[in-house]
Design a protein around this nucleic acid. Structure first.
Length: 424
RNA sequence: GGAGAGAUGUCCGAGAGGUCGAAGGAGACGGAUUCGAAAUCCGUUGUGCCAUGUUUUGGUACCGAGGGUUCGAAUCCCUCUCUCUCCGCCA
């Protein structure tokens, strides 16, 4: 949620931002509702004032006639208050539910564009490997090596699920531990978070838990959801909390399972591990002051780079365009790893994403801090993928495959796996 | 799962229909005292919203959350959530 007190002054800017993001929000209606609310509030408060004054008059002793008259007056006020409060409640509901749909402001440098084609490549690292043979995709490799079983998972759980087997399990755990060690080195507080969160937390982070197009699984009758990312549980961790400025920045690493419905997301790239209903992810999440957030955003990106460079996987970085940002994000950088088995002859595929959400989520979750001067302000919240294990597995299998179908384990992972290659 | 107790401001803790935004204490901050400090004394010390102003002022709301009773609720009633104690069960 943006600061609604700025709605009128920054209306033009907000409207342009909505258009840049390819969204539709009726700002005039929201402003109209804001005016109505303000008017109704003033009326209610004036009536409440009369009610309080009336009640105060009745403190001491008085003759019966005066008392009866005051009670009558009070009853009348009471009726009028509840009448007007009812209207106010309706207006407020509509006002806030529409206002919540206004997206965050976008960083002035974020590229303007509608589709992911408009994302701006800002750098790249590593050379896509050239193979002396035709590289396989991770689905073939995983099945031949008996480390991933899609078929059984489809029978047991449905499409877009998978079993990891044998060295596949070791690879998953090695990647988790590899990334955890890097984040610990950078001073992150390590957590394993719940995989379930209450709907209001999910909403506060900016996900819509309901509806056909929602990517969130809700658990019927409980008011809770399966988390799509530990961003949800790490952001909820300090909801309703007020920090001291000296507490910040606060960096968390959260390991969780991630569950995504991916409704209607079937396409050529949904094959295999790339788009699945459940995966493990180590997420970075930072609470900081507004002054710090740009700098910390760069830090998160460079940690992501450190992780992928350490694995030796070629990648590029894109600055996400306005249309692809997602409502809470002010700016977002993605790392796209080279995946030789993707497309005709290899393509980049998203493996991490880091967003600066400024105070947008903090307003919804009510996370504040007190400045040294004693002022109360909203914190800035940032998130970033340290490692989304399933996608990292795609990149590793496809990049480090040998002509005989075996996999050479990146040296950074060897200590965690205890083996140097996977072969059958 | 069964039985009981509780939830008040930064913290501890009073409060039992109007005099309560809330006693008292602690802490923090400002000041006095001191060469300085401790001790002592005096003062200040929550947040949201609406309007107004632009380093103000006024109003309103908030005593776990949501409803209700009443002219008037921290105080009475209902529902929910959470915490604690005891018993049972369990990884």
């Amino acid at each position: 949620m943006i600061d609604l007190r700025e709605l009128k002054e920054r209306k033009e800017e907000i409207g342009k931002n909505i258009a840049d993001r390819g969204m539709k929000v009726d700002l005039d209606l929201i402003i109209e509702l804001q005016n109505q609310r303000s008017l109704l509030l003033q009326q209610t408060e004036a009536l409440r004032k009369s009610r309080n004054e009336n009640a105060k008059k009745m403190k001491g002793k008085m003759d019966q006639n005066t008392r009866t008259a005051l009670i009558e007056e009070g009853k009348t006020l009471k009726d009028r208050i509840s009448e007007i409060e009812e209207t106010l409640k309706k207006v407020e509901q509509q006002y806030f539910s529409l206002a919540r749909t206004i997206p965050n402001y976008a960083h002035p440098s974020a590229p303007v564009g509608a589709l992911d084609k408009d994302n701006l490549e800002i750098s790249s690292w590593g050379e896509p490997a050239s193979f002396t043979f035709t590289p396989k995709d991770h689905v073939q490799l995983g099945e031949q090596l008996d480390i991933i079983d899609f078929e059984s998972a489809t029978r047991v759980s449905g499409p877009k699920f998978y079993y990891l087997k044998n060295e596949g399990v070791l690879l998953e755990l090695a990647l988790q531990r590899y990334a955890i060690d890097i984040l610990q080195k950078h001073g992150f507080i390590l957590t394993i978070t719940p995989d379930i969160a209450k709907e209001e937390i999910v909403e506060g982070i900016g996900f819509n838990p309901r509806g056909e197009e929602s990517n969130i699984y809700t658990i019927e009758g409980t008011g809770t959801c399966l988390v799509g990312t530990a961003e949800i549980t790490l952001g909820g961790y300090h909801a309703q909390h007020q920090f001291d400025e000296s507490d910040l920045p606060l960096r968390y690493a959260g390991l969780s399972h991630c569950f995504r419905r991916e409704a209607g997301g079937a396409g050529q790239y949904s094959k295999g591990l790339y788009r699945v209903h459940q995966f493990s992810k180590l997420e970075m999440f930072v609470y900081c002051t507004p002054e710090m957030s740009d700098e910390i955003h760069s830090q998160l990106l460079s940690i992501e780079e450190e992780i992928f460079r350490g694995l030796g996987i070629p990648y590029r970085i894109v600055d996400t365009c306005t249309g692809d940002l997602g409502a809470p994000a002010y700016r977002k950088f993605d790392i796209e790893a080279w995946m030789p088995g993707r497309g005709e002859s290899g393509e980049y595929g998203e493996v991490t994403s880091t967003s600066n959400c400024t105070d947008y989520q903090a307003r919804r979750l009510n996370v504040k801090y007190k400045t040294k001067e004693g002022e109360t302000r909203f914190v800035h919240l940032l998130n970033g993928t340290a490692i989304a294990v399933s996608r990292a597995i795609v990149a590793i299998l496809e990049n480090f495959q040998m002509s005989d179908g075996s996999i050479k384990i990146p040296s950074a992972l060897v200590p965690y796996m205890g083996i140097t290659e996977i072969r059958r």
